[in-house]
Design a protein around this nucleic acid. Sequence first.
RNA 1: GGGCCAGUAGCUCAGCUGGAUAGAGCACCUCCCUUCUAAGGAGGCGGUCAAAGGUUCGAAUCCUUUCUGGCUCACCA
Length: 625
Amino acid sequence: MSLEKILLGTVQSGVQALYNQTFNENLIQFQKTKKEFDGDITLVTFPIVKFSKEAPHITGEKLGAFLLENSDLVSAYNVVKGFLNLSIVDTFWVDQLNTISETVNYGFSPSNGKLYMVEYSSPNTNKPLHLGHLRNNFLGYSVAEILKANGFEVVKTQIVNDRGIHICKSMLAWEQFGNGETPESTGLKGDKLVGKYYVRFDQELKKETKALVNAWVAETNDDQNLDEAILKLISAYQNNDESAQAGIFDKLSELAKNQTAIMKSAQDMLLKWEQKDPAVYKLWSTLNGWVYDGFESTYQAMGVDFDKLYYESETYLTGKDLVEDGLKKGIFFQKDDGSIWIDLTDDGLDEKLVLRGDGTAVYMTQDMGTASQRFLDYPKLNGITYTVGNEQDYHFKVLFLILKKLGYAWAENCFHLSYGMVDLPTGKMKSREGTVVDADDLMQEVVDKAKAGSQERGHLEGMSDTDKNNLYQTIGMGGLKYYLLKVDPKKRMLFNPEESVDLNGNTGPFIQYAFARINSLLKSDFKVKPVLKTVELHDSEREIIKLLIDFPQVIKEAGTELSPALIANYTYELVKLYNSFYQSVSIFKESDDEKINLRLNLSKNVGDTIKKSMHLLGINVPNQM
RNA sequence: GGGCCAGUAGCUCAGCUGGAUAGAGCACCUCCCUUCUAAGGAGGCGGUCAAAGGUUCGAAUCCUUUCUGGCUCACCA
């Protein structure tokens, strides 16, 4: 039973005895005593004043005296305004520490029999993974681990975005300009090679677009086949001054894009792909194969994995049945051009397209299909969490609403783990402007930095080269993951390259270092036993025990909030307290064996908690660093 | 224009289901390695919690309005 629960009963009988009142326990508010005051736990007496009809400090005094008299736990009290600060006997804290030590899997919940799916990553197969994907992957992986710690069985999954016009763009550019290049012939990772041709396509497209628009606006242009909107713009361009021309040129460029030869070829290729043209299919599977090899090595470096993969090329058609079904049920409606929509205006949203006029699937169609497929594949499935950026908030709001309207009870248990964009000090990442931070490059950089830092400090005598390299990996990746996970997922965050490889302060390596020091302590021959109740606690020891008591609650909250940041912040607090303790008391210079035992016992529990917390973030901890 | 999200120290972030004098890290300035790993610790400097009203014994936290920034409202994904 928690301290608050135990005290609650005594407070209630106190109120009964003093004021002959019984009242709702919600009115009894406990909070942690702030560190500038004496005490361990504080009762806020303002709400009780309503019944006592006294000044808050009078009621505090009376209740304090009652508690001191009637509770074995309370050893002292003091009153500051409306706050009754209670000191709790050390035996209670020692007892708690022993309980924590004896609890198997302390902080983790037993299985609740529920199956949950966490979707994350879900990249396009036309370009390499970047910094944004790192936040996504680390978040998704961590949330999956946190849900497991809360008793769920979890299937980690992704939907691989392997089809569509953007995929055809890189295919086409490779075909036209690639000269048969392969990962082997160039030494490039597959995803990098394909990404290179995606960029190449864009360059060609820009070049052709510009040429086309220049031809349109030239005096000699007599192409009468252009549609009216374009002709209007051309005439506007020709009859305006230079300052207005730039804007018109941009508008024309937008229209011209789709009329360039290269874009038409790409669209043509998509059509052929949908018709399963053998040559196009072969090209598609070859390039995607390269990309998957590249991704595989990136995922490995990230330390993330998946239990089940879904491919858009396999699921994009399945949503159509749902649309047909919904149309019959009158949930959707058809417009004259054949396109199918849902009217969500009653729910405060818009009309939303669910199937194109030509009968092809849109994003929404596919996501409906994929969701339903997943519940078919896993009949026990309770819900899905989608780790997707917050620019898709509206999409998921609509998706879940549609699924609900289609009558799926499980739609209630689908959540969008919406996370904010990662900005750079220079602003937004833009692939077109080449400001994207590549995932592989960044991971390599942080590992290199960790290596340099470790070598400078030189605590690694007697370690093999393999172990050293693993350590650099652990520290570098630990720093990067911690950096991206310590911020509330919902919030947009700034990625500062300098800070991300920092090893001091609120960082992954700071926490790893505390673990390594604890590990070093525990290597002694001293045999750790349960702590005797008679031991007197140092302030820093008591504070650590108090924080350890919170661990299970933190894991629960991280689970309901889907927020690894809560775990990160908790661990940081714990490590700060531990470091302070480590500095202020000596362990092996202590003459009293019982105190040595207490301190090692405490250290071991802190170490275990650090390890478990970091595990929930996908971060490893080193025994030595 | 409608909807959603955010605005806290020079910078990056906690705190937000209302409670005491708003906290960390970085940066800057002092100290501490003949104690177990100094990737550490102790301290200092630094705030109109975007602004104005309101509710309350009490507001960074809840409500209203305004300002600023972002995302979104595609027969793109």
